[in-house]
Simulated assay, not measured.
Amino acid sequence: MAIEPAFWTQPVVSLARALIGARFLIDGIGGIIVETEAYDIDDPAAHSFPGPTPRNAPMFGPGGHVYVYRIYGLHWCLNFVGGARHGGAVLIRAIEPTDGIAAMQERRRLVDIRALCSGPGKLAQALGVTGAMTGLPVDQPPFSIEAGEPPREILVGPRIGITKAIDLPWRFGLGGSGYLSRPFPKKIVSRAT
Rank of each mutant, 00 (worst) to 15 (best):
A132F: 02
G30P: 11
G64Y: 07
R70P: 03
D112G: 02
G21K: 00
I162Y: 07
S190H: 11
Q140A: 12
A165C: 00
L123Q: 05
P97Q: 12
G161N: 14
K122Q: 14
I162N: 02
V68W: 09
I33A: 09
L110E: 03
A45Q: 01
K122H: 05
G178W: 02
D42R: 03
I95G: 03
G83A: 05
E153A: 08
L174G: 05
R109P: 00
T130P: 10
I32R: 14
P58K: 04
V156F: 00
P151K: 10
P120R: 06
I33S: 08
A147G: 13
E149R: 07
G178V: 00
A46Q: 00
Q140M: 03
I162V: 15
G135I: 14
W170V: 02
L78N: 11
D99F: 09
P120G: 12
L15F: 12
A38Q: 08
F80L: 09
S14L: 02
N56T: 04
L91Q: 13
W8T: 07
E96I: 05
T98P: 01
A57M: 14
L91E: 12
F143N: 09
I113Y: 04
Y39S: 03
E106D: 03
F49A: 00
E146F: 02
R17V: 01
C117P: 03
A57Y: 06
L123C: 09
P50I: 00
I3A: 06
I166H: 01
E153P: 00
V156Y: 00
G176Y: 15
G83R: 06
I145Y: 05
G121T: 04
L15R: 06
I154T: 15
P137I: 10
R55K: 12
P58Y: 03
P58G: 02
P44K: 07
I26P: 01
G131P: 11
G61A: 14
S118Y: 03
E96M: 11
R55L: 10
K164T: 02
L116I: 05
P142K: 04
G135T: 07
R85C: 05
V138F: 13
E96G: 09
S181V: 13
E35I: 11
I20L: 04
G175K: 04
E37S: 06
G31L: 06
A57T: 15
W8A: 07
G28E: 03
V34Y: 11
P52C: 08
D42L: 07
E149T: 08
A165Y: 01
P137R: 12
T163M: 02
Y67T: 10
P142N: 10
A132L: 05
V68S: 13
V111C: 00
Y39K: 09
G63P: 12
M133Y: 12
I29V: 15
L168R: 15
R23H: 15
E149I: 10
C117D: 06
D40F: 13
G161A: 10
P11W: 08
M1T: 14
V81W: 12
D42K: 01
N56I: 05
R159E: 10
D40M: 10
G100K: 10
F60S: 02
G28I: 05
A124R: 06
L155I: 09
T36D: 11
E146T: 14
